[in-house]
Design a binder for these strands. Sequence first.
DNA 1: CAGCTCATGTAAAAGCCGTTCACATGAGCT
DNA 2: AGCTCATGTGAACGGCTTTTACATGAGCTG
Lengths: 246, 246
Amino acid sequence: MSWRKEQRRAERGYHHGNLKEALLQAALGLIAEKGAAGFTFADAARMAGVSAAAPYRHFRDRDELLSSIAQRGFEQFEARLTAAWDDGRPDTVTAFERVGRAYLAFAREEPAFYNAMFESGLPVDANPALQAASERAFNIIRAAAERLAALAPPGTPRPPAMMMALHIWSMAHGVASLFSRGDAARRKLPMSPDELLEAEVLIYLRGLGFPTDRRPPTKGAEPPPVPPEASSGSGVPPGGPWGKPK
Amino acid sequence: MSWRKEQRRAERGYHHGNLKEALLQAALGLIAEKGAAGFTFADAARMAGVSAAAPYRHFRDRDELLSSIAQRGFEQFEARLTAAWDDGRPDTVTAFERVGRAYLAFAREEPAFYNAMFESGLPVDANPALQAASERAFNIIRAAAERLAALAPPGTPRPPAMMMALHIWSMAHGVASLFSRGDAARRKLPMSPDELLEAEVLIYLRGLGFPTDRRPPTKGAEPPPVPPEASSGSGVPPGGPWGKPK
DNA sequence: CAGCTCATGTAAAAGCCGTTCACATGAGCT
DNA sequence: AGCTCATGTGAACGGCTTTTACATGAGCTG
């Protein structure tokens, strides 16, 4: 029976009208299901109700579709990181940790995007637009690290913000790809990926000399470059970032 | 002209004699070249000089070949981590950092194995043997973390070794997959991946209260559980793990 | 050494995919 | 109404994976 195709044709006519978008959506679903490796150009076409050759009117080849998805992913990623950072409100450390959680949340909630962006093996630096989008996303982390570095307790050497940003990125990416996605998430862990990353970042920040004990956000705007949080002593908080064993 | 095939046939006879191994080697080369995604069963067969159907006498399907490579990779990985750890000699922190460098070195020098193990998207927990091999490798890091945790400076709470191990693993994997492999390595960084990871781990350890200033290994055996290195005060070392800006 | 057996290899074929090409359709403009 | 061009179709090519029936010859058995 091929009345299905006829039916669809009847519904939408010879021309689809919005095929490019439909293909992107279909691909997104397929990648979420079976990974970027298992995703098939022909499948996406089928899902959109067009012939296997139709997609070539909108994408040079399969890789270009993948790149488009990665690009879109980086844009949404940047948006979410920006929102999480919220320009460092209510205080830099709190906002910074929120960015970390946003990173994991994105990896968890948008597996298709994350896959296309970081796990599909497509050469990011081959596509200038893609590379630029990727850089814009990273720049959020970088800017946050910059602000954080400026808070370094007086007396200690100021850590290079770029290095901090790379460190944080590697932690977030490491946790996300090892523990927070697909079947890797089924590994039996003593804590959730979110908690794991939060503890990791807190310990790291403490290693840089930042005070990292929890406290309610201070009233009013944080006066840069030396907010009140930098004056709470640099001692090791009791209990540690990983909480107490229950 | 198909005398090539005839020639090979003449050289080795109808039966290859060591096809399984030849296929594994061929696949290893192909994966190193084009990644696990681009690797082709048929190509490996061609490279070994046999027909496309021959590999099915030794592997159920393409995935099983990949699994075999991943398995072998985990074994070599474990061996290298074990050698690097060297049972904590000459002192725990030094040995620990050596493990970190060994992790990166493996990712860099054995891209095919690393790819099959961590980036091929094959479900590690679907194959019990593979999962066991993976766990054995991780256990090296875990054991090292255990020893390190036991060195926690008195007075501070002892960090859970499992958590430390997961943290270190995520850092190493994050740095390796973001900065140390393929075209990602072409990203312009302020420092090498090795230096980046070393600084990251040192800062992290300092955040746990470990003294991390460089010093020549102490003469003689390290007396557990409180070696001399734990008695050098817990102050922040001047200069920091990232060295001075040149 | 003859003969048998079975692991190992081959050729052919089916079914899927990516990609290209000549051709069809119809939306929008003149 | 007629033209044009973006968009979609069907057919075809080559490559890949996997299966099946058949071929080969290494090694055992007597």
